[in-house]
Each structure stands twice: as C-alpha cells, then as structure tokens.
Simulated assay, not measured.
Amino acid sequence: MGSHLTVAADAEFRAGASVRSQALAFGLKHTVRPLLDVWARLPFDLFPPNVLEHAARLLPAPTGTRWRSVRLEHCRSEYVIGAGVDDVPGSGNVILYLHGGAFLTCGINTHRRMVSRISTAADRPVLNVGYRQMPYAPVTESIADGLEGLNWLLAQGHRIEEITIAGDSAGGYLAFAIARAALDAGLGRPAGVVALSPLLDFDTSSKAVHRNADRCQTFSLRTLVRFGELTHRLDSRRGVAGRRTCPVDMPLIDMPPALIHVGSREILLADAELMANRLVAAGVPCDLTVWDRQVHVFQAAASWVPEARSAIAEIGDFITALDEQQGGATARPAAPQAPTGTARRSAAPA
C-alpha cells in the first residue's frame, strides 16, 4: 500500500497528482503557510476579520444550485440543494455539513460551492451550518450549534438514521463531535460521518513525531501548536476548560461508519490515521482514503483540480452506500418540490 500507514486500519491510496493540483500545492506552500507561520510567531493573540467569508459572497454557485437561509437559535445556516437533486422538505436522506476554517474563519459562503457539489454527488440536500466561532465563542458552542442544526433536521421530519454528518478541517472535528453528542443525548445514531482533512486532536505530540511534521503544504507544526494554545486559553476564559474531549479520545464503539479523506503530505494525516485506527479497533467501519500529494481540503477546488472531482464522487458513493448498510432508507420522492422560505437558484457556470 502506498499510504505508509503504521496503524491497524488499512488505507486506500489514490496515486497520482495532476499538474493543476501541484500548482495549487506550490501556491499554498509559498503564500498561506508562511503567513500562518508569521501569525504563529506573534507575541499576542490576533483574530483577523473573516474577510474570506465576506468576499465569498461574490462567488457563483454551480449551475442549478438552490439554497435558502435557515435561522437557528444562535447562528445562520443554509439549506442547499445541488443541481439535479429533488427535495421534499422533511422527507428522505439529508446531510448536515460543518465548514472548516480552524474555528476562526470561513462560513456558509466560502463552502456553498463544495457543499452543492457534495449534494449533487450524494443526491440529497444539505444543511450547511454557520456555527459560532472564536474569538466570540469557544469550540463547545460550535458543537452546540451543530447539534442544534441536527435537531432542526429532526424537527423537519427527518429520522436520525437518514442524516449523514460531514465536515472539513475543523468541521471534521465537529462532525465526529456532533455524532457523539447525538448519541449521548439519546437521539440515536446518524447514518455516517464524512471528514475531509479533519483536525481531530488539539494535542500536537503525535503530529510532532509524524513523518509529515514538516512536509505539509498548508500548516507548519508551529501553527498548530499556537492554534491549540489559543483554543485552550479561550476555553479557560469562558470557564469551559476540561469540558471538551477531542474526537480521537471520545468513546467510539457505538459511532456510525466513517469516511476520512486526507492528503498524503498533510500534517493532519497523523490525526486521520489515529482516528481510523481507533475506530477500527472499536469495531466501527472506517474508510480512510489518502490522496497523493493533495493539499488540505483539496475538494474545495473541484472546479479546477480533477482529483477534487474524483474525491467528491467518492464521497457521494460512500453516503449513498450508507442507505444499504442501514437496510434501505426512505426512498426519495420523484417529483421535486421547493422548500418553504425564500429560495435562490444559481445559473452561473461552475
């Protein structure tokens, strides 16, 4: 196997990296990573404005995308229906999505394009949750907002076994945490979890000794150490220190099946391997796919990078296969019906 795993869980290795994917990796390595290194060296905490989320309002969604705003108690969210997906509110399978951004940046605008493509690939609508982020809220409140999104879907009539929870980067942390929270709250077990380049452990000790400790195109070890310190300081200021458990340390024996995607040079490969190993050891099915030289959350570049399109297709296949594992889910209605509320449709090119 080309994945170089030193854990019990076998990985699928997707060999090959296109010229476009390598150009993206080169660009990130020489722009984003140095900027994050500068941030990590600052003698004070800096929380820049979420410029990416505001700028992303200008990005067109893939052709045929429909969406409407959903107001949860503490945050904005968005119900996204990808091109070709039929939807009758409260009926059939659905995805709960948590965006990445290190709990500091990004949101529903930055992730609308990728979420729409995942919706189309999996043939089901998606609730994209714009959860509260640092420095205004600790990670525990981000988890609470995701659980609120899950409860919103249940209130619409969806059954827990029809809901797949997905997320990228920090959203991968939330996807596992929300599945755990749902089980602990007695809501039942979601259909599955999908995590893309997930951050799953704030402890950087395993990353420091990993072969990718200094190979990642996006994050240095120093950046992740500083990020972990920042989250712990915020937890302490908010009085929630010690109340949060990272996904790799959660009880896993009753968790739903999982799919984890990660790039072969990402420093977060350490988290992905550890989580896959612990899930398999707990008897939980876990598909770990390691993508050759792909960057952090490369799936977001599907309009440009061919491997991203292949990855999204695999995500769709995994989610639809969960229906069979659950013994057959409620069939999706043949006739489309627009959801209630104000909806928008994109006719812009992908």
Results as ranks from 00 to 15, higher is better:
229 E>G: 15
174 L>W: 04
189 R>Q: 05
233 R>S: 05
241 A>I: 01
190 P>G: 15
176 F>I: 03
165 I>F: 03
204 T>E: 02
215 R>H: 12
208 A>F: 01
178 I>Y: 05
189 R>H: 06
194 V>Y: 00
232 H>G: 13
161 E>G: 10
189 R>E: 00
217 Q>Y: 09
200 L>R: 13
190 P>E: 08
237 R>F: 04
229 E>F: 03
240 V>Q: 06
184 D>M: 06
228 G>H: 02
158 H>F: 00
176 F>L: 12
227 F>I: 08
243 R>K: 13
193 V>R: 13
208 A>P: 07
173 Y>E: 08
235 D>I: 11
229 E>L: 08
236 S>I: 15
187 L>V: 14
155 A>T: 06
162 E>F: 03
216 C>E: 03
159 R>Q: 08
214 D>H: 13
236 S>Q: 12
230 L>H: 03
229 E>N: 10
156 Q>H: 05
215 R>W: 01
232 H>K: 15
212 N>R: 11
154 L>G: 08
223 T>Q: 14
156 Q>G: 09
236 S>Y: 03
216 C>I: 07
207 K>V: 08
155 A>F: 02
225 V>Y: 02
245 T>G: 14
203 D>N: 09
179 A>N: 08
190 P>R: 15
197 S>C: 06
158 H>K: 06
242 G>E: 00
176 F>Q: 13
182 A>K: 02
183 L>N: 10
158 H>G: 11
236 S>R: 12
213 A>R: 14
